[in-house]
Structures are given as C-alpha cells and as structure tokens.
Nucleic acid binder design. Structure first.
Lengths: 243, 243
DNA sequence: TTGCTCCTCACGTCACGTGAGGTGGC
DNA sequence: TTGCTCCTCACGTCACGTGAGGTGGC
C-alpha cells in the first residue's frame, strides 16, 4: 500500500505556486502534508493534491483563503451563499471601477489638451467633471466623450479657442454699452448657437442638461472663469430680448 | 499676520479622514503640520489644507500614496504618465473582473440548479465552464446565460431531464442491437434535434461551436459522463446514415 | 565534494484601524 | 475635577516575496 508522495517543490511546480505559498497554506491550516521525512521534509499524498485542486479552484473565483477554508470545511449551502456574495461584491466593484474609468478618461482628455499639464489643471478638470456628473447622466457623459474622441484633440482645442474669441467679442460689446438685443450683435449670437450645437452634438437632452447646469451653478465656476456674472447677465438679456 | 490654524481633529473631520490617517500621511512624508504647540499638538496651516485637497483628489483617482507624493513633488509631464498608467491598469482590472463575473454567474447558475450544492458539483461546473470557454466566445456565453435566465431554472432542469430520458432510450436501442439508421428510431433523432435547438436557441454559430466541442473533446468529459464512447459512436452512425 | 532542494525564522508589503498608556486644554 | 482631544508607540491586516543561515539527498 505504498502511495505516491510529492515533495513540496514538485507539488508547487505542478500547481504553479511557490514553495512559500504552500508553507503559508500549512501555517493557516489550509493544507498540511500527509507526513514528513526524518529530516522534517514535507511529503504530500494524493488527498493533499485533490485538496489543493479545490483550493486553487476556489481561489480562482476570488475567494479569500479564509473563505476557502470555511467552504472546504462546511458541508453544503454555505457554498452557494459564499459564491453569491462573491458575485455581488464583484459586481459592485465593477460598477465603481467603471465609474472611476469614466472619470479618468475625462481627466486624461483634459490633461492631454493642456500643453503644460499641471496639478492645478488636473484639479480644475476634476472639479469640472464633478459638476458635469451632477447634470449629465453616465450615458450622456459617454456620448460627450465619444464625440470629443471622434473630433480629435485639435478640433476640440479649436472649438475652445473659438469660444474664447467669441466671448471676448461679446465682452467688448458689453463694455461699449451696445444693447444686447441690437441687430449688430445677431451674428455673434448665431455663432454662439453654432458652438453650442457643436458641443451638444445637436442632442436636445444634452442641451437641456447644459442649460440646467449654467442656470443653477455659479456662472464663474460653471464656465471655469470664462464668463463673469455681468457678461452672463448681458447674454441672458440678449436671449430673452431676442425671443 | 496671524494665520488660521487647524488642530488635527478639525482637519480630519473636515476632510472626512481619521486622525490616524493624518498621522500616517505625516509619517510617510506626505503632509506635515506647519507647526506644533508646546505640548507637541499638531497645528496645520492653509498650505496644508490645500495640499491635503490635492492628495485627496489624486487618491480619488486611485493613485497610491507613493504615487501621489511623486506627483505633488515633480513638476510636469509625470502627471499625465501616471494618470495614463492608472487608466490602463484600471481597464485591465475591469476586463479581468468582467471575465470573472461571467464565470461566477455561470457557476452560481449551475450551483443553484443542484438540489445539493457541493464542492464536487462546483468543480464539475467549473470544468464544464472552462471547456465551454474554449469553444464559445464571451458573447455566445452571455447569450446562453441570457437564454437560461429567460427560460428559468425549472425549464432548464426539465430540459436536462428530457436529455437524460432521451439518452437512456438511445442506449437501450443500442444494447438491443437496433440499427441506428432504423426508421424505428427516427422519432428519437427528431426529439434530439429539438433539444439541441432548444439549447442553442436556433443560433447556427452556437450550434457549430457545440459541435466542435463534442467532436474535439473526449466525449465522456464533454457530456459530463452522460454519453459513453460507444453511445457516441452509435449516435454518429445514425447521423451519417440518416444523411 | 558540489549543486539543488529543503528547513525555520523573520521582516516587508499598503493604508491605515485599534488599542494601550499617558498628557494637555477648556 | 471631568470629559474631550491630543500624544507616541506598537501590533494587526492579506497572501505571500525575499533573504538569512543552516541542513539533507542524489
């Protein structure tokens, strides 16, 4: 009745583990060798091999070694509960990480468009994003990101440039006391509508969310400092005046 | 030039951290208090507050405290590299976890249909799944899972029952030496086609993958012991004989 | 005798949580 | 004087990796 015995190195190699890992499994009471040689070298029997197989299977499902120990010890339904909990936890983690991914994509895009990416720029981008997240759904944000990507960095930068120029012109008109509803400015308002269309991609829901944001938030913050309260009031008058 | 100072507890509460965390940040050189009282109580100035704000922002992106330290120390491009790496790592983790989720769903389903869920059952399910993953794409697996879910556990169990009955009848015919191409059996083959249709949902690609699996793998393993090599040969003869 | 494998400590990891035992400030 | 806050150790976490220093087996 001589049974096959494995030395720890053989077993480790076969299982794709390290010797140290098997030491550890023994230390926490998960798998102990069947016997030892005179020199206290570990010898593992077939029971150990099949137990190790189970351990690795459960480990592959992401169970902790403590949970694995409990599963191998206890009889029955435990297993389903543990695996079920594992799945629920995993789903939550995936959810969180998916949200984090979307934030990272947003931020990386903003960083990338800056020629001198700094922590200040990053913080600004994060704050912008946090604000955006309050007004746009995850789907809408993904839509915006997609459009950004399709347009390319250069086009987006160009759009930002056009905004800056447009706002400067409006500000000049305001300082010069031009009536915001004056026909002289109508060309500006048309250009502005165009830029808004470009940003929203013509999607009315996104347009609405954007409007909500600008109407609810502090305008200086919402526009990242590009629009002063006075300028905003001026623009509002043009809109209500213009119909 | 008296500047505002915060005690550690105030700062911790305001930041949603624990006092211990701030101790730790100091220990690793991330944020040190501006000064100390005679009794060595920590006093934090505004610089600390803004630095802490940055730390928390970067921590929210999933950076390690070591990386955060590097980002706050170094000047420039580092930041983009670090955030980019962070995003890449995250995407890989999401990928892995999404695969794991699909495995867990599969296994939990199998476990759930077993009245006496055991580790043996779980191992069998895992092996079946591993084999399935070799022949079906992730999309196809998701499709199969969806169909399973829509049918419900009872229907799936019933299907398995019907398979068992059908195979028993075929085995009886084989033992009795019935010619597999005999018209007496044609009703059995029709029922079998029906069950296969039910499993595949009529999708030809899934049908093909299933066939590949059965043809390539050891039949006893592939059928989870339900079909012996002899029975399989008998069924094959019927198919080739029948056209 | 020379490698290779094995042995047993024991420290390090990451971001803190959780006491223990003592002092400071309103 | 009584709470509350603060202080400094120091151990624990999870699944091992990585030596250190020594012995066993072909």
């Amino acid at each position: 009745v001589q049974k096959r015995r494995w030395r720890i190195g053989e077993l480790a190699r076969a299982a794709g583990l390290t010797v140290r890992a098997l030491h550890y499994y023994e230390a926490i009471g998960l798998i102990s060798p069947t016997e030892r040689t005179e020199a206290r070298h570990r010898l593992y029997g077939p029971e150990c091999v099949s137990r190790l197989y189970r351990v690795l299977a459960l480990r592959g499902l992401g169970l902790s070694l403590t949970e694995i120990g409990r599963c191998l010890g206890s009889e029955q339904g435990e297993l389903e509960v543990v695996v079920g909990r594992q799945l629920a936890d995993l789903e939550q983690r995936i959810d969180e990480q998916t949200r984090l991914r979307s934030r990272l994509q947003f931020i990386l895009g903003a960083l990338h468009r800056n020629e001198e990416p700094s922590i200040e720029g990053l913080l600004e981008a994060m704050e912008a994003m946090t604000m955006f997240e309050r007004y746009f759904s995850q789907d809408q944000l993904a839509q915006l990101r997609d459009r950004h990507e399709r347009l390319g960095d250069d086009a987006v930068k160009q759009g930002e440039q056009q905004w800056a120029e447009l706002l400067a012109e409006v500000e000049t008109a305001r300082r010069n006391g031009v009536d915001p509803t004056s026909p002289d400015l109508s060309e500006l308002w048309v250009r502005m509508q165009g830029l808004i269309e470009q940003f929203t991609g013509g999607d009315p829901a996104i347009r609405q969310s954007l409007q909500n944001m600008y109407q609810t938030e502090d305008i200086t913050q919402a526009s990242r400092g590009a629009v002063s309260p006075e300028l905003w009031a001026y623009m509002q008058k043009a809109r209500s005046g213009g119909g």
